[in-house]
């Protein structure tokens, strides 16, 4: 084990020491798995990124920066993408309903509205946690400043892995740079979840201003689009913004309902109708009976015979 740098399914293993606590003074060993990032659709950043699996639950960007930059002293980290953290794009999708339909036709004009949209997504209510936690066994992508830093980091990690026992203590030296865990964290949460009125109103106002701008921009684009021929030279005729589509839906539903009621009126009019109805009933009875039989078989299979308690 000592000669080969430990690997598992292509991942290098980096053991870390988790510091002990008064409750469990014995430090524990944690294992990080890392590998150069190879996404299915590579982008510019992927060549200088590491894919890290099984990060401790209290991992923050600061932790990873510290780990690679100081503790392994190998490379500088530019940023960290966590698995669960909401990225701007993923969340804009549900926010604006119409967006999906618009994507195709108007690439150029969308820009302004989308810019505003992303600006809108930035506006949030104050957070109630001072620090996010990761799920146990979660992954992260660590983007380094350049490719050599990434490679050096991987090499340094392998070296530590080879030694078997780790001397790197997780988060040692940055205790004062990240909000602490434990009671303090929850007391802080209890405080942070009640932001001041001014803070809240500020966020709301900011949001509403941008929201109106977005609506405005979209409307403009819509209007422009209505006059612009597409690649085949056709102009799509639209009937203006569907502001009240919900109300219309309700209306339609009601209409359908009424129609149904109307057509119901003459059911027993012809003789064949009542005959068919009766036949249907008979078949229904048969079907029920078969179903019941099956149910009984099922029950017997599950619980054995019907027995008195």
């Amino acid at each position: 084990m000592k000669k080969e740098s430990p690997e598992i399914a292509g991942f290098s293993i980096l053991p870390l020491q988790l510091p002990g606590t008064p409750v469990l003074p014995e430090p524990a060993t944690h294992y990080l798995y890392l590998r150069p990032h190879e996404p299915r659709v590579p982008d510019l950043d992927s060549v200088r990124s590491l894919f890290v699996v099984n990060i401790p639950i209290d991992t923050t960007e600061a932790h990873l920066r510290h780990l690679f930059g100081t503790q392994l002293s190998a490379g500088r980290v530019e940023r960290v993408e966590f698995e669960d953290a909401p990225t701007g794009k993923a969340h804009s999708a549900p926010a604006i309903a119409a967006q999906g339909n618009l994507v195709k036709s108007k690439k150029r004009k969308r820009v302004t509205a989308d810019e505003l949209q992303s600006q809108l997504d930035e506006v949030r209510l104050p957070a109630s946690w001072d620090r996010q936690l990761q799920k146990s066994g979660a992954r992260a992508i660590v983007v380094f400043v350049d490719k050599p830093s990434m490679e050096a980091s991987l090499k340094a990690a392998r070296k530590v892995g080879k030694k078997g026992k780790s001397t790197i203590v997780w988060g040692e030296g940055i205790e004062d740079r990240v909000p602490s865990l434990g009671l303090a964290r929850y007391v802080a949460h209890d405080r942070l979840r009640y932001p001041s009125r001014a803070e809240l109103l500020l966020a709301v106002n900011d949001y509403m201003v941008v929201f109106d701008q977005v609506a405005e921009a979209r409307k403009r684009e819509e209007a422009r689009k209505a006059q612009e021929p597409d690649e085949d030279g056709f102009i799509t005729v639209t009937s203006g913004p569907k502001l009240n589509s919900a109300a219309r839906e309700d209306e339609m539903r009601e209409l359908v309902e009424r129609q149904k009621k109307k057509s119901q009126g003459l059911e027993d009019f012809y003789r064949f109708q009542s005959r068919e109805k009766r036949k249907e009933k008979q078949n229904e009875l048969l079907r029920r009976f078969d179903e019941d039989k099956k149910r009984l078989e099922d029950m017997k299979r599950r619980r054995g015979k019907i027995r008195l308690e």
Binding site: L18, P19, G20, T21, P22, V23, L24, E26, P27, A28, T29, H30, Y31, P56, I57, D58, L133, S136, S180, L181, G182, L183, A184, R185, Y186
Partner: peptide, 16 residues
Amino acid sequence: NRGAILNEIARLGENL
């Protein structure tokens, strides 16, 4: 890794 998990629980619940 039970040891590490318990360690994480202990650190998360410090003072609690």
